[in-house]
Design a binder for these strands. Structure first.
Lengths: 326, 326
DNA sequence: CCTCTTTATGTAACCGGTTACACATATAAA
DNA sequence: TTTATATGTGTAACCGGTTACATAAAGAGG
């Protein structure tokens, strides 16, 4: 490994001078700079970030903690974060938490041990003192939080939108699939939908689901039609569940959207490729990731930031699992 | 930040002794050990991995480089890698390369700068001297390579399987969608399929595609039926493209699988939720990730390893976009 | 010509760990 | 009792950078 000493020797200067050249700090004579740069080139030297990080007590790494990259919503968030960070020369230590507090703590610990300068987390425990004690900027992604920096979509609005649209398109016996109770945005959506349905006096049922996994999605879809075969409108907690419901509805010989309308949530990339294509509430996942990256960088570089809570807009995407509005 | 010195002071011993205790190296008297452990507990000390890494010239980090986490095939690979690494106390620095050599180099560089102990990469340039010069164990994932450690699925076999199955189920005017030419596994699949089709004298066309993106998948699906409206069997380069083809076929009023059969590749999680559910060639993505993690760890810890090229089995998954075999 | 400031560079301490080495004591073997 | 060995602990060098401080030369101002 070629070190700063090798470069110094090659250029016949001290390590301090080399450091000054590569960091562009302090005074360096033009001729000296050239000598150093030539030596760097010849030896193909790149500074050891670990040594830097040790002295400065900060690295160019940030921690990214997501529940499960396997859930099709998160890759887009992750990609947004990565692109935002990459452009600013930050790198990412990545972990899946599985919504599991022990794993979460373990990762937070290794983030600290590796001198990360900030953390982006999609956690169900944003108020855990694990985060409060963290002397680092933290941005909560896809999770509402009034007292901490956060980037999230307007789940309640999304839920309201979905309910409004399904009513406007004629559903009168609606079934809401209530997502996992411990996942905040899922509950926001649910609340929003319930509000609208109650207000407009439409009859509705609730199917409780406890995760976003593919396997179980099919199960809940079956349960839904078992219990409420006559439902004519389903508000799914996300697009995976919606897909499973659509699949099951078609299997049962129902016509979608004529017999039953379905509205998903998230607008994952595959939604538009389903047949019929899935009507859903769009969340700008990639942009949310980028926003989170931007916010975290501002917090890292400026310490205080005015607009710490970024709410992203949601919108209804009309495709083919809903009928035309009257 | 609490350092080893603080612990040493608190326990009235030297830093060397503290180090011995936490690393379980050398001799330490039981009483001393207890004093140190108590101090660690009281101060809530955790060792700084950066300092460790600097002295030892190795970290507990590995680099993971994937083309694009947004492509639904990769999250499963990533998750497999992550789980395998996490269980062995390794952490992951993650990057998307976009199949772009510049980005790839940039990441490899930061991997080195951060003292990673190994790299897992899904790259189109496994023989680039960038990897040869790397004095670290590297495992190529989802990429064949005879002279470097690698984990990959049998693409050629997969392509053969797909062709055999679609023929056995009665397709006589097959269209193969040839994936991006620069992506090795895509070409292996293509080769395999072509071999079988030529051998059995079945008429076939080829549609060339240049990426795996969602947007373009729809375009190619349209192109396919524009050029070959009468095709009665499509071998798609992956499940995304297959989904787009299915979507387009249904939109054109075709009956799937009666008028046209479709076989995908990868078996991404959503495939089984499509309507009709997608018949496809299954690759064990998650297990491939885990295998790659295991292989890399063996390389890190043992240096030499006997079985450095792990080929994973593929299999045909019969669902509803193919007819029953005769 | 002298003083003050700016420019230029080197020496050494420091970041927080690990470990080679020295040294002291306890235990076992002769 | 003497010697060899095993056990226990501390001091200081080291990893590869950054930077405070010291020092010196060059240029500016009077």
């Amino acid at each position: 490994m070629v070190t700063i000493k090798d470069v110094a020797k090659q250029a016949c200067v001290s390590v301090a001078t080399v450091s000054r050249v590569i960091n562009e700090t302090g005074y360096v004579h033009a001729d000296t700079r050239k000598k150093v740069l030539d030596a760097v080139e010849q030896l193909n030297y790149t500074p050891n970030e670990v040594a830097r990080s040790l002295y400065k007590r900060k690295s160019k790494l940030i921690g990214l903690l997501l529940p499960d990259i396997t859930n099709p919503y998160f890759p887009q968030l992750a990609r947004g974060v990565e692109d935002g960070m990459q452009e600013n020369d930050f790198r990412i230590i990545f972990g899946n938490s599985d919504e599991n507090e022990r794993k979460e703590q373990e990762y937070i610990l290794t983030f600290i041990q590796n001198n990360v300068v900030g953390v982006i987390a999609s956690t169900n425990h944003p108020n855990s003192d694990m985060y409060a004690k963290l002397k680092l900027p933290v941005v909560f992604l896809d999770r509402t939080s009034s007292d901490s920096p956060s980037v999230y979509a307007d789940g309640r609005k999304g839920g309201r939108l979905a309910a409004e649209e399904i009513i406007a398109r004629g559903s009168r016996r609606v079934t809401i699939m209530q997502g996992p109770v411990h996942i905040r945005p899922a509950q926001d959506r649910f609340q929003g939908a319930v509000e609208v349905l109650k207000q407009s006096g439409i009859e509705f049922n609730v199917i409780q689901t406890s995760s976003f996994s593919f396997k179980e999605a099919e199960m809940w879809a079956k349960e839904l039609f078992n219990k409420h075969l006559d439902t004519d409108g389903v508000l799914a907690s996300n697009d995976i569940v919606a897909t499973a419901v659509l699949h099951e509805a078609l299997r049962l010989g129902k016509n979608v959207p004529h017999d039953v309308q379905i509205i998903g949530f998230d607008d994952i990339p595959l939604s538009s490729l389903l047949s019929p294509a899935l009507s859903t509430i769009h969340q700008p996942a990639y942009e949310m990731g980028r926003e989170a990256a931007g916010l975290l960088i501002r917090l890292i570089e400026q310490g205080k930031v005015e607009n710490r809570n970024i709410q992203m807009p949601v919108r209804f995407v009309e495709r083919d699992t809903t009928r035309k509005a009257d």
